[in-house]
Each structure stands twice: as C-alpha cells, then as structure tokens.
C-alpha cells in the first residue's frame, strides 16, 4: 500500500474507524464481564449464594423453592 496515493486518508480513516469500533466492543465485553463477576463475588462474600452453589446441608435446610 502506498501512503502517498490519492485518497489514502479515506483508507486510513476507514481502518481507524474499524479499529476504534472493534476495540470498543472488546472493551465493553471485557469490562462488563469483570463488573458482573465482581458483583457476584461481593454478594457471595455477604453470604448470598445460589441454592445450587450452597453446601448440601444448607440447601436442605432452605427447603423447596417457592
């Protein structure tokens, strides 16, 4: 690719836009996942767990689902 070709600015702007949008999507997925996992860890640290994640005795004591 020649960098002094006519209209090269349009080509570079297109690849720049693609890079920005793709990086934005990747960051969105990574940061969203990290935030959700942190929320679950905080809830579990406060003793709130899904029934399937609790020890068997705790789950029995909790009784059937409402």
């Amino acid at each position: 690719m020649s960098l002094d070709a006519p209209h090269i600015g349009f080509v570079l702007a297109s690849y720049g836009a693609a890079l920005a949008i793709i990086l934005g999507l990747i960051l969105w997925v990574l940061l969203d996942g990290r935030a959700r996992r942190a929320e679950i860890r905080a809830l579990e640290a406060a003793g709130i767990r899904r029934r399937s994640d609790r020890p068997v005795d705790d789950a029995r004591a909790a009784g059937p689902a409402p």
Partner: peptide, 13 residues
C-alpha cells in the same frame, strides 16, 4: 486505486 482496500472492512461489517 488504494480506496479498494476500504472494501475489506466495509463489506464484512
């Protein structure tokens, strides 16, 4: 010319 290279990101997107 070089602008054909835009096709490689425009068409897949």
């Amino acid at each position: 010319g070089e602008t054909v290279r835009i096709m490689y990101v425009h068409v897949p997107s």
